[in-house]
Design a protein around this nucleic acid. Structure first.
Lengths: 343, 343
DNA sequence: ATCACGGCTGGGAGCGCTCCCACACTAGTA
DNA sequence: TACTAGTGTGGGAGCGCTCCCAGCCGTGAT
């Protein structure tokens, strides 16, 4: 009468290592070796254990393993809440999908950690340390964020999305904002546009600055003059910047907005001004979001390989976790110009 | 020389219960009682323990707790991968945000589980059982999905998003698809439209059927005749259905699409046919997604309180986990008509 | 003064693993 | 023949908690 095993309740009736060992007629250590793929087991023993595992439907208890081995086989994806709202679409779900794909063939599980206000942010490092996750994926990190360095000091492997500056010291995955912007503007040049303006993102964000650099490089190549207005990645910001540009340079014949959302704002102002897109003014965005695809006319935009970035982040993190020597590579993934009717 | 404590490495140097007990001059059991908020501790002892906890920066080790208490303080959010791609926007991130908000003041942590193909889906129940999560949140469950019942049998609390049928046996959170559709069509009637068509979703999805029911109810109230074409929640499906409707009933003056994406497809066909929106044909969607906000003209749409649904799901699950008696309530949250220029 | 009965408390046992040491046993070397 | 080295294996110890039982003390009833 194994009452404890047959009783109702969570985890009830699940076989343990010990039971597998008894069934296979071997010791606990041997089963553990088989489960963990140690080579120091004879083929017959291995087969016997594997049969017992299959018969009993044994699955290791993660908590016990975590406690004994001092590793959790879990990584945390930390998403700062206020920013999440911004690029929730499609950024977030794509990152998650990429991370999930990279983890699919792994024992690693994904912990989602939404960080709200400053108070929670301050507790976060301790929180992560207590949960003893094996590594942390950090998205949307600000240039002055102390969190990455804090985690470093705690000895927790970290990978961040988007570099914070040129010489990012931490492992990071970024998209080629510079080249994406350059290609977009070169495309406008190739279409015969000669007065090409840009609406920038907030320039304290490294990626936004790189997009501006790319814009400038393309103009320099073509020997054209730059025309810049500052936005903040919001639709209203795009509207304001576009209005300012029309005031300053009514002759402009193309606009490169550093985000689709800003492009959408710009489009409204262009329409209100009676300008046809692309006939009078060509428009190009950045992100290749749902907005771009459904805009009227559909918006030419720079696609970032977000899902691949998520995948790469996870792979980098897994490498960092298993590695003895920290490597901290900075990966930059190529962007792709998706040409649609707006240019 | 507590070498083990001061050594580098994950989890190194973190104080244990025992150390807190020693510092506070009490026993292990007492510290555990304080940590877990047991009332059977005197005020002085409690204060002493809390001081020791603060001084040492003690945080309980989750793995040890999970092993000893046979609960993980974690719930899993299970997202079927193929479907995820569909309603990734904005559904997924909003659900996550809501769930995160509900869990913020809790010790519960959120495990994200992406399920890919059928093979992985089959392993999922065992997987979840082995991870010994305290509960499972299931989004996008098909009517014939065996997973919910499987989890039930394993004694794992489950909450699903969206009922699979009228008398959903499991705990569920749904939005009021019927009333949302009814309100949208009533709005068109109030605007003086008399020939109102609908583009339905796939009718094996309960929510899509309810939207059709709501459409019919509103028409019946107004004494109007129905005009139905079937879609599949895709843009192309919306286009096809719209073309079919124009063929069958060129005189129609309004269309209620059961999703924004289908409305976007319909809009293209209406434009190609030379019809102005809303002058000739009013258009209403469902979901209030980014597409609706950025459509030209902006699309009137039915907003589902997705974030609140996520929050409600988490709260229901927490209740189910702590409850002794299973309750399995079906919660239906109200929708809201967001009127924009398209109607 | 004696007993019963609560409120607090300490600490043993044990959760299911991994780690590692010790021990067989085999085969090769002197 | 003895000794070494290598392979495979069993099982003790211990990870850091929770659970629970026994024991302490003080109080009020007998």
């Amino acid at each position: 009468m194994t009452a404890a095993r047959t009783a109702r309740g969570r985890g009830a009736g699940r076989p343990t290592l010990e039971e597998v060992a008894a069934r296979a007629g071997v010791g606990r250590g041997t089963v553990s070796r088989v489960i963990n793929g140690s080579p120091r087991v004879s083929d017959e023993t291995r087969a016997a254990v594997e049969a017992a595992v299959a018969e009993l439907g044994y699955v290791p208890n993660r908590a016990a393993r975590a406690l004994a081995a001092n590793r959790t086989d879990a990584i945390a994806l930390v998403v700062p809440e206020p920013e999440a709202r911004f690029f929730a679409e499609p950024y977030f779900s794509d990152i998650v999908r990429g991370v999930g794909a990279a983890l699919a063939d792994t024992e690693m599980q994904l912990l989602l950690t939404l960080v709200g206000g400053d108070r929670e942010r301050r507790r976060l490092a301790q929180y992560l340390a207590s949960h003893r996750v094996d590594g942390v994926l950090l998205v949307s990190v600000h240039a002055d964020d102390p969190l990455p360095e804090l985690l470093e000091q705690l000895g927790i492997p970290v990978v961040i999305s988007g570099r914070r500056r040129e010489d990012e010291p931490l492992a990071s995955v970024d998209s080629d904002n510079y080249e994406g912007a350059r290609a977009a503007v070169a495309h406008l040049v190739a279409r015969g546009r000669r007065s090409i303006a840009t609406i920038t993102g907030p320039l304290d964000v490294y990626g936004a600055r790189r997009r501006l650099d790319g814009y400038r490089a393309a103009l320099a190549e073509a020997g054209l003059e730059e025309l810049t207005a500052h936005g903040d990645f919001t639709e209203e910001g795009g509207r304001r910047a576009m209005a300012e540009l029309l005031e300053r340079a009514p002759h402009l014949d193309a606009v490169f907005a550093a985000s689709d959302v800003m492009a959408s704002g710009a489009r409204q102002v262009l329409r209100e001004d009676g300008r046809r897109i692309p006939d009078d003014t060509a428009l190009v965005g950045f992100d290749d979001s749902a907005i771009a695809r459904h805009m009227d006319p559909p918006l030419t935009s720079v696609r970032q390989p977000i899902e691949e970035m998520g995948r790469a982040m996870a792979e980098l993190l897994l490498a960092e976790i298993t590695a003895t020597e920290p490597a901290r590579p900075s990966l930059v993934l190529p962007t792709e110009l998706v040409v649609r009717a707006s240019s």
